[in-house]
Amino acid sequence: MDFEYSDEQRLFSETLRKFLNTGYGFDARAKIITSSAGFSEDVWAAMAEMGILGVPFDAEHGGFGGNTVDMMVVMEALGEALVVEPYLATVGLGGRFIARGGTVAQQKQILPSVIAGKTKMAFAQTEPGARYELARVSARATPSGDGWVLEGDKRAVLHGGCADLLVVSARTAGAEGDAHGISVFLVERGAPGVTVSEYRGLDNLRLADVRLSGVRVARAGLLGAEGGGWSLIE
Rank of each mutant, 00 (worst) to 15 (best):
V167K: 14
L111N: 12
L202Q: 01
E41A: 11
G152W: 00
A170K: 13
S6E: 07
L158E: 05
N21A: 07
Q9T: 09
S40Q: 07
A37V: 05
G160N: 08
A28F: 08
W44P: 04
R100Y: 06
G214H: 01
A156C: 05
T142C: 03
A48R: 01
L88C: 13
T195R: 15
R140K: 15
L11P: 00
G95P: 05
C162P: 06
E8S: 13
I110C: 08
G221A: 08
E60N: 10
L134T: 14
E49P: 02
L212I: 08
A135Q: 00
N67G: 14
G102Y: 12
S35E: 05
E80R: 15
R219T: 11
Y87M: 02
D153E: 15
F26G: 06
A89L: 01
G54Q: 03
S231F: 02
F26P: 04
W148E: 15
G227V: 10
I233C: 06
A81Y: 04
T126A: 12
P56W: 02
F12C: 08
I32Q: 10
I98P: 07
P112C: 07
A156R: 12
R206S: 13
D203L: 12
V69R: 06
T142F: 02
F64K: 12
L93V: 10
G145S: 11
D178T: 00
S40F: 00
A163Y: 09
S213C: 06
A30Y: 07
